[in-house]
Each structure stands twice: as C-alpha cells, then as structure tokens.
C-alpha cells in the first residue's frame, strides 16, 4: 500500500519543529508500524536526508520505550504498543499523522523521541518498599489474599510508556501514578510507607508539570496494558486518607 506520512521533525529540544510530509510506497501489511518507519529511514538515508528519530527497544510490547501519537491516538488505532501495531490496520491512500507525546513533563529530545525521566523521579519520591538486600523475611512469612495479589499484579503491569499522559486532555499522569500506588497498596509489604508514599509521589507528579485528573478515561482507553480507572480511585482514596490524617 501507499501512504502519506506527516511526521513531526524537530532537530533538538530547543529548536522549533514542524510537520513534514513524506510519501511512502510499497508498504507491506505484515510490517509493524515501526518497521515501516525503519523503511522510511533507510530511504531517507539513501537520499541523504537525516532519518527520523524515534524510540523503541524490545519491540514486543513490554519495555515501554516506544510511543507515538498516530492520527491523534496514543499508540495508534489498536489497543497495544506502537511496536505491536501492524500496517494491516491502515489502508492504501491513508494519511498518517505522527507526532511525539506532547506534555510539558515530556520534553521533546528530537523528532518523535521525548524525555520521560519525570516518571523515574516520581518513582524516586516513594514508589518502592524500603527493604535492603538481605533484610527480607521468608517469602511465605506474610500470605497475601489472592484477590489482592491479583489486583497488585494488574496494576504492576504498567510499562511506563507515557501513553496515559499523551492521551489525557489535562496532561495528567494519574494512571501511571495510580498504578504504582495501587500495586504497593494492595500488598502487605507496601503498608508501612503507604501514606507518606502517596503524598510524596503526588507532590512530585505536580512538580513535574503534569495536570490533574478529570476522570475522563482517555488514559485507560489507550493504555496498552489496559490498566483500569479504578487505580486512580485508589490513588485518590489514599491521598484523601493521607490529607485527612495530616490535617
């Protein structure tokens, strides 16, 4: 198939960017979306133009490195990561607009690659259990009811790709934050630091310039791991508890 690509090009973080149009021909429907961009880059290189920079690593949907805004939808038309999107989801003649994640907390590094280190800093603020190596009790010391363990797992499947922020009209990272809060709040190991964790992580979330949640649900709709909205409820509940007991 033949497509028209409109791609955001920006030489570096401080330069201005623009949308550039590239026609691309003979795209196989078996290609993944990123392989299609690989092919474009090979062609650009042959023509002496600099290839389009974009992030990807595992290309099997788990590392969270890839992420493009494709025709206005984070990760494109399928509910999966950009690397797992295939060209059979498009038709001949389509115009495909490709943009980087847009959020003040995710500054553009170049073209389609953005800096998501804000997520690491949110984790720094308390997204862990404070246990030194060697200080652990036996793994069977505290049983965890299966439903809590399962919910913790569901929340912990977040791959930190940032699609939730990219899709959110408010540029909020609440789904990412809620997933981590829920993961640790459901487990006995996470209880000791539960309320300081939520205060500090929410505080850092705001410092990074992310917006507030308005419970619209765009984040869950594009989340490749389908993290549910109810993790944000847990985040809110823990925050309410933390605020109430502090006041």
């Amino acid at each position: 198939m033949n497509l028209t690509l409109k791609i955001w090009r920006q030489p570096n973080g401080s330069a201005a960017g623009e949308m550039v149009t590239y026609p691309i021909t003979d795209v196989s429907e078996d290609m993944s979306f990123l392989e299609m961009l690989d092919v474009l880059n090979e062609r650009l290189t042959a023509e002496g133009q600099e290839p389009v920079a974009f992030d990807s690593d595992c290309r099997e949907g788990i590392c969270g490195m890839c992420g493009l805004m494709i025709n206005g939808v984070a990760h494109g038309p399928e509910v999966t990561t950009t690397c797992q999107l295939h060209m059979r989801s498009f038709s001949d003649g389509d115009v495909v607009t490709i943009e980087p994640w847009r959020a003040s907390g995710f500054p553009v590094l170049r073209d389609l690659a953005v800096d998501r280190s804000a997520f690491d800093r949110i984790i720094d603020a308390g997204g862990y259990v404070s246990v030194n190596t060697g200080a652990a009790p036996d793994a069977h010391a505290s049983p965890v009811p299966k439903e809590n363990a399962d919910r913790a797992f569901d929340a912990a499947t977040c791959i930190s790709c940032g699609a939730c922020v990219a899709a959110c009209p408010n540029g909020s990272a609440s789904l990412f934050l809620g997933a981590k809060i829920t993961h640790l709040a459901e487990l006995p190991q996470g209880q000791a630091e539960r309320y300081t964790r939520v205060l500090n992580m929410v505080h850092q979330h705001d410092l990074e310039g992310f917006g507030g949640c308005t419970n619209i649900g765009e984040c869950t709709a594009v989340c490749p791991k389908e993290i549910p909205q109810d993790v944000i409820a847990t985040l809110n509940k823990d925050m309410r508890h933390a605020l109430w007991h502090r006041v």
């Binding site: 805004m69 943009e99 847009r102 009209p169 540029g171 310039g209 619209i216 649900g217 765009e218």
Partner: peptide
C-alpha cells in the same frame, strides 16, 4: 494547570472514549 501541562498542542487529537459530558 492542565493548560500548562500541554503547551504545545497536537496537530491531530482524537477523543477515544471521552463522553460529551466529560469533555
């Protein structure tokens, strides 16, 4: 805050699930 959280807007942005009420 929301406006500040996304200063550069998308050229194309679709609402996938948001209801008219929520938007």
């Amino acid at each position: 805050r929301a406006a500040k959280a996304r200063e550069q807007r998308y050229a194309v942005k679709k609402a996938v699930t948001a209801t008219l009420a929520s938007r």
